[in-house]
Design a protein around this nucleic acid. Structure first.
Length: 854
RNA sequence: GCCCGCGUGGUGGAAUGGUAGACACAGAGGACUUAAAAUCCUUAGGCCGGAAGGCCGUGCCGGUUCGAGUCCGGCCGCGGGUACCA
């Protein structure tokens, strides 16, 4: 008898699918459409298990939807711009473009043998000029529609390498290559005005019913709507008032100082004359620009000497401090400090010996604040002291509302709704990205490129020599000719913008481009109207905020600029966030810099990890996100070449629920392979069966088959792939032990092949053919469970006594509650527990459980 | 720091508020084999017990409920995001 040979089978059936053109998306008026999309990969050069897991899940959905009568669009592309390509060029010569396209070729070669039902005719990479040229057109339309802005923003500046650093390249405040202390530098940059859409983006979250609640919540918090008030504090020196923003005006009585941001206009104005302030402001400028670093840093400040009057208690003067914890980007860049009711303000006040005064107490407790601020929840009642709003014991929220009304009525402040969400800075001072189609002209100023001149292509060399990437900095800036262009408006010599776009721009509209990837405009409205929205989007939870929010913004921007139909609204109707594939990191130290080693370079023994090359022990950092920068990626190709694609696909789906992280281990793969072999052998045995068509247990087998159809269908529809696979394991065991006749066994194995087909399409196709199935399994309609075969005659109900399981009874499924009660009261364990008495309570949930309370 | 998750046997995990540990991995025992591999069968949360059976058990503490892995409050640990990693 022959054996399960995945390598042969898989090549054979992939060729058959290709020949049938099965996965080329076609519009079909007779079918509902279904667009399934997995977050496209960055071409790091190697496929890893995370990719395989992601695309296998998408493929299960795509194949299932095709089998249930949908016209399916399931495309794939590459998110191909970004820093790693430049880093690779810097580290080992060559050109980012060559590196990127070589990686794409490799990854496509790795992906194809996995048998995903992808429409490869639609593939593109975001670094294709045909793609980023359309992105430039989009940018120009957005500029015209008023969705783009130009303003100053702060970047990390490496003073030694003379270049802008990404946050990732700043380690403990120092440049990753130079080791120099990083500075902040302000540059004029391009922004998308996403904050103008904050309310819409927030409101629409409520309609995304098929998104995970946690993602909606994270986005809600990120957008961060708050209702507060802007209050001008008048300076005693008569200069313009300082306007503070507060969401807790109910604490106004306790205001004891004003804190302004280091880059607040008032701070800046003082910088020239006050060396002590200039030093502090300079120190703040050296801080990391990340939110985490700012929040975790010690809260420090300096007194400016400026004094303001309390807006209500005018006899009180408050000092104005510059605080390193105040952000210019949020509110007005100035806050009043109320130490009694804010922990950060209290720490600050204790440190610099500022007064602490309560605005309220908890009812009945007039205790002054010590080292812990009194911060009641907004719903908690508090007792106000001498409050201008004339209120006594109310909740904080009521007090906030009343205070805002009172301030507005006295013309002392203005109620304001603010958002935490900031505009999206898209300028990057780097080479390997989409050039921003703007020209600077001495006469005309900032001039948009003409659409006829698009795409503005990145230069491949500098005229006669390859571009040198070995020096840090932006090669576009030092290119001898690329910057020099005539002004699109007056024709005079002018300079091209040398900044490129954030790579998040590239990934914010690719889903729309897939609906018409070769169109001469960013999208083809006819195609977009048919295919949009994405019905199911699948990707990592690490994209819960930025990528998904930017995509939601872009979908709206594209509607406004006429590139998507009105009805599109949101880009992704349903979202599934898969867990990550994690793996230990192997780390060693090279002169203070961490070096990360690939798993295949490391040998695990005696509980430690050692380099194969020289036996040196390396540190094992426990399970972490697989990341190209940490080199803790696992190459799935080894599994595919040893066991076949179906084994790899089955394995990544079987071992863990899809939304949860999974730590990659080698051990499960072989088990998956063994099971698939068993199924193949079972099919071969059934195909050779002789004897009666009918046998004993036919009906029982068919009942199991229908239950399995029901359970696997439910599993696939609800992303319960691991549970669906468990059912398939159980059904395989049932079938292999069955004494049923040939007809029932053939029906059973064919149903199993179909149910497995989304996960193991090649094996299923082979079984389908072996059993004489009609056409291709991949084109066959999904099996339906017969409701009549799912009805159970009797149920087993556990009997609990005081909530602990003590016995069980088997009763007809339709037995009335009263009769079950009688049976329970006659049960031996119950009689013993009652000891002649009556139960305090008897709970019978028909078909489920019985609980006797004694 | 802040926002969001997650925590169940030796391991991955299952469980609409209703029999905790389905299904699988590793393990142990057995069959087949000269032997091994492969395959098949049996077994398995911990503790006590010969057995029947009992007690404990879903990170920790507390609460709601006839009943909590599941809901609520407070902790601890781990992970993701934190706006220039993608």
């Amino acid at each position: 008898m022959s054996r399960y040979d995945p390598i042969e089978i898989e090549a054979k059936w992939q060729a058959a699918w290709d020949e049938a053109g099965l996965f080329t998306a076609r519009r079909d008026a007779s079918k509902p459409k279904y667009y399934v999309l997995e977050m496209f990969p960055y071409p790091s050069g190697r496929l890893h298990m995370g990719h395989v897991r992601n695309y296998t899940m998408g493929d299960v959905i795509a194949r299932y939807k095709a089998a249930t009568g949908h016209a399916v669009l399931h495309p794939m592309g590459f998110d191909a711009f970004g820093m790693p390509a430049e880093n690779a060029a810097m580290a080992s010569g060559g050109h980012p473009k060559d590196w990127t396209y070589a990686n794409i070729d490799t990854m496509v070669e790795q992906m194809k043998p996995l048998g995903f039902s992808l429409d490869w005719t639609r593939m593109f990479a975001t670094c294709d000029p045909e793609y980023y040229g359309q992105q430039q057109a989009l940018f120009l339309d957005m500029l015209e529609a008023g969705l783009v802005d130009r303003k100053p923003a702060v970047v990390n500046w490496d003073p030694v390498d003379m270049t802008v650093l990404a946050n990732e390249q700043v380690i403990d405040g120092k440049g990753w290559r130079s080791g120099a202390e990083v500075e902040k530098r302000e540059l004029t940059q391009w922004f998308f005005k996403i904050s103008d859409m904050a309310d819409e983006l927030l409101e629409a979250l409520g309609h995304l019913d098929d998104w995970p609640a946690k993602v909606r919540l994270m986005q809600e918090n990120w957008i961060g709507m708050s209702r507060g008030i802007e209050i001008p504090f008048h300076r005693t020196d008569g200069a313009d008032p300082i306007i503070c923003y507060s969401t807790r005006p109910d604490t106004m009585r306790g205001a004891s100082f004003i804190a302004i941001a280091p880059d607040h206009p008032v701070s800046r104005a003082l910088e020239n004359d006050r060396p002590d302030l200039a030093d502090f402001i300079e120190e703040c400028r050296r801080m990391d620009t990340t939110e985490a670093a700012l929040e975790k840093a010690e809260k420090k400040g300096v007194d400016t000497g400026i004094r303001v009057k309390h807006p209500v208690y005018e006899d009180r003067e408050l000092p104005v401090w510059i605080g390193n914890f105040v952000l210019m980007d949020y509110g007005t860049g100035a806050v009043f400090g109320c130490p009694a009711h804010d922990q950060r303000d209290l720490d600050f006040a204790r440190k610099y010996d500022l007064p602490v005064q309560n605005a309220f107490y908890m009812p009945g407790e007039e205790v002054d604040v010590g080292t812990e601020a009194l911060v009641p929840a907004k719903t908690e009642p508090v007792m106000f002291i001498d409050h201008f709003a004339g209120i006594e014991t109310v909740t904080s929220q009521e007090a906030i509302d009343a205070t805002i009304d009172w301030f507005e009525s006295k013309d002392l402040g203005t109620g304001q709704t603010k958002y935490r969400l900031r505009d999206w800075g898209l300028s990057r001072q780097r080479y390997w990205g989409c050039p921003i189609p703007i020209v600077y002209c001495d006469t005309c100023g900032v001039v948009p490129e003409k659409k006829d001149n698009l795409p503005i292509e990145l230069p491949y060399d500098n005229g006669n020599e390859p571009i040198d990437f070995s020096i840090p900095g932006n090669p576009l800036d030092r290119h001898p000719t690329w910057r020099d262009v005539p002004c699109p408006s007056c024709g005079a010599p002018a300079r091209r913008e040398t900044d490129t776009m954030d790579t998040f721009v590239d990934s914010s509209w690719y889903y729309a481009r897939f609906t018409a990837p070769r169109a001469e405009t960013p999208t083809d409205m006819d195609e977009a109207r048919y295919w949009m929205n994405v019905d199911q989007y699948i990707g990592g939870i690490e994209h819960a905020i930025l990528h998904l929010l930017y995509s939601r913004f872009f979908a709206r921007a594209m509607i406004k600029t006429g590139h998507l139909p009105e009805g599109a609204g949101e880009p992704f109707d349903a979202l599934f966030t898969q867990g990550m594939v994690t793996h230990a990191i192997y780390k060693s130290d090279a002169g203070g810099r961490p070096v990360f080693h690939y798993p295949e370079e490391v040998e695990l023994k005696d509980g430690g990890a050692f380099l194969k090359e020289d036996g040196r022990e390396v540190e094992i950092v426990p399970s972490a996100k697989m990341s190209k920068s940490k080199n803790n990626v696992v190459d799935p190709q080894a599994i595919v070449s040893a066991f076949g694609a179906d084994t790899a696909r089955w394995f990544v789906l079987s071992d863990s629920p899809p939304e949860r992280d999974v730590e990659w281990t080698a051990s499960g793969a072989e088990a998956a392979y063994k099971h698939l072999s068993r199924v193949w052998n079972l099919s071969a045995k059934i195909a050779e069966m002789t004897g009666d068509a009918q046998g004993q247990g036919d009906e029982e087998l068919m009942r199991e088959m229908h239950k399995t159809i029901r359970d696997v269908t439910n599993g696939v529809e609800s992303f319960g792939f691991n549970a669906a696979i468990a059912k398939l394991y159980a059904f395989a065991a049932t079938l292999s032990k069955s004494k049923a006749g040939h007809a029932a066994q053939r029906d059973a194995i064919m149903a199993m092949a179909q149910l497995m087909a989304p996960m193991t399409p090649h094996l299923s196709e082979d079984i389908w053919a072996a059993q004489g199935g009609e056409g291709l399994c991949a084109a066959a309609p999904w099996p339906k469970a017969d409701p009549a075969m799912l009805v159970e005659a009797s149920v087993t109900m556990p009997i609990q006594i005081n909530g602990k399981r003590r016995d069980e009874i088997s009763v007809p499924a339709d037995m009335p509650k009263e009769e079950i009660e009688k049976l329970v009261l006659a049960n031996e364990a119950v009689v013993r527990a009652l000891d002649g008495g009556q139960p305090k309570k008897l709970i019978v949930v028909p078909g489920r459980i019985v609980n006797v309370v004694v």
